[in-house]
Design a binder for these strands. Structure first.
Lengths: 336, 336
DNA sequence: AATTCGCTGGCAATCGATTACACACGCGGA
DNA sequence: TCCGCGTGTGTAATCGATTGCCAGCGAATT
């Protein structure tokens, strides 16, 4: 398929392949008339370097791999889109993998990416501890940056938001709206985001004197279904808090929906908050107050870190970049 | 990075690299004791073939490229996930590109994929005519199958749903629910889906004696915003039809939302239907009646066609596989 | 006993680019 | 005149795997 090679260009321009390579990829000086002749020949023949051959020689593929827990989650989709965009600016390609929220397939995907000689890996690990070995092992071989979530026991670059600070603004906001008690609808504490958001919620609920309690801490997974079920459990349990703080938007969407079907007023009876600011939060009934994740900036930082790491690989301290997200206030909470 | 090579294994097993290659990839017979020795050596050294080197030699990368108009659209996300899944079964990788709904970047992406020696390409072209040259050119070089949408003027494989038949079931359904007039909220007719859905709507509205009209045909793009705006225009125009048939779920979600904010009862005053059955249709208020796209089967077919094409490349007739989708009835339409 | 055949395994070419090394040439200084 | 040096180009090795062709060997055939 790859018809025209560097040898063809060399023949046509009447020079050696070495010169062609130098003229095009510009490693060393080439006299300007020869360079022009080579470029002309290349243009006429429609020559393009074969990235495979180049990759074999220089062991660099201009491709970065990305592994996300689930491409179904619109938050990760947004992240992927942002990463693609950021890479495009550098002329790099994206090899995308879905871990299906399973550490084993995640490990397989990481290995596959390593074998394929990607230049670097961006991963949002699906599990806080079970993902550690694979991430660790991969990070020893390649530049790697963790996105959004990170695993314990490794020291790699990481970019994400400050979950604790975000939770502070959430709690502050519902408190200002009159909430004196709140439930936390989260995901099991198997990864860093889950842990930090939960911890942030507890800490700041305490700070603002918002009542919480174990019976008001419901941990499942990041899905609409779980949000619906959790509200069911709360409603059945007798006492309902003033606010439902959710660990992500999917849970919050489920919660709002369940409230509706049970006739629980939002925000009149309970205020509800989400996290991520995926597109569909606007469409909920009522539109969801949530924490906006700056996916664009997260992606840019990640790509930059990866580029840095590719430069001087050896002894560089790992960077942890935590962006402080903004609260987006909509109608699922009370203001003033 | 790629530490252990076939030569290391050969040395350790006391054979030549040729034998190692044959023992592992099994091109030709190797006596069983030698094969065992080689496998042992490979295992001990942790050897894995270098896909780059292999690709250079055999010019096959076990990677397929996919280009979608926008990864933001959950329908395409679902499609991507399904394709990834289907490829995984074949031990192939996915190189994903986003065309940002722009034929020029789409063309660039296609070229990039060709240069990278992917084994085949799956594309959902973003424009019915402007995408043609790039798709055509690409199809001449590589196995290519179009998904969901297709461009005019080429003869490549295609897999998608029968949009006309789908529209028939939609119109039949709202008619059965009492609709005697209907508006069509679609996207500008710049691609096949848009055209066919629109044509199907008109044809079957006519068949069922459902009133339509140019003032009730609103064409914009596939987005929530457009759905909202279109309903605004309809409401302002004076006369509202009995049903809003939308060309995709995003438009329908916007339409439903706009109806809500304007106090137009759904389905009491107007019935609303979507198309694609993305996850969030369940969450709308009311949940949306829509056409379910069998993404799993579409992806499976596409991957199968690609595999076929890779086998006997030359003279094979292009296949057009149209699956007939099912209507999913929820609460945004009236039943019986 | 000589020839042929089948089966295994090794040698070396090959894929297409990059690059270390060598070489040719021209020019200036000793 | 000779040497040294810089510049620009060519030669060939290299990346790591696959594979066409050939050689050796034992068994089978004549």
């Amino acid at each position: 398929m790859q018809r025209v090679t560097i040898a063809d260009v060399a023949r046509r321009a009447g020079v050696s392949t070495a010169t062609v390579s130098r003229a095009l990829s510009g490693g060393r000086k080439v006299s300007s008339d020869v360079a022009e002749r080579v470029r002309a020949a290349a243009r006429e023949l429609g020559y393009e370097v074969n990235p495979i051959a180049r990759a074999l020689r220089v062991s660099r593929t201009d491709t970065v791999g990305m592994v996300v827990p689930s491409i179904r989650n619109p938050f990760f989709t947004a992240l992927v889109e942002s990463v693609e965009h950021a890479l495009g600016a550098d002329g790099k390609e994206l090899l995308l993998c879905d871990a299906q929220s399973d550490p084993d397939t995640e490990a397989k995907r990481l290995d596959a990416l390593v074998t394929r000689n990607v230049d670097g890996i961006i991963v949002s690990p699906c599990h806080g501890t079970d993902s550690t070995p694979a991430v660790q092992r991969t990070a020893e071989r390649l530049p790697l940056v963790q996105l959004d979530r990170f695993v314990g026991g490794t020291s790699t670059d990481w970019v994400g938001v400050d979950d604790i600070a975000a939770m502070r603004s959430v709690v502050e906001h519902v408190h200002a709206g009159g909430a004196r008690s709140a439930a936390y609808l989260g995901a099991r504490l198997t990864n860093s985001s889950s842990e930090l958001r939960h911890a942030g919620f507890l800490r700041h609920a305490n700070e603002f004197d918002v009542e919480t309690g174990p019976q008001w801490t419901l941990l499942g997974d990041y899905s609409v279904e779980w949000g619906e079920r959790a509200v069911g459990m709360l409603a059945d349990s007798g006492r309902l808090p003033d606010a439902l703080v959710c660990a992500d938007d999917l849970i919050a969407l489920g919660a709002v929906r369940a409230c509706r079907t049970r006739g629980i007023g939002v925000p009149a009876r309970v205020q509800v908050t989400g996290f991520d600011n995926i597109e569909f939060t606007r469409l909920a009934e009522p539109p969801l107050t949530t924490v906006d994740q700056p996916t664009r900036r997260i992606a840019d930082e990640a790509v930059r870190l990866l580029a840095d790491a590719a430069g001087g690989p050896a002894a560089r301290d790992a960077a942890h970049v935590a962006l402080v997200p903004k609260l987006v206030v909509r109608d699922s909470t009370r203001t003033g």
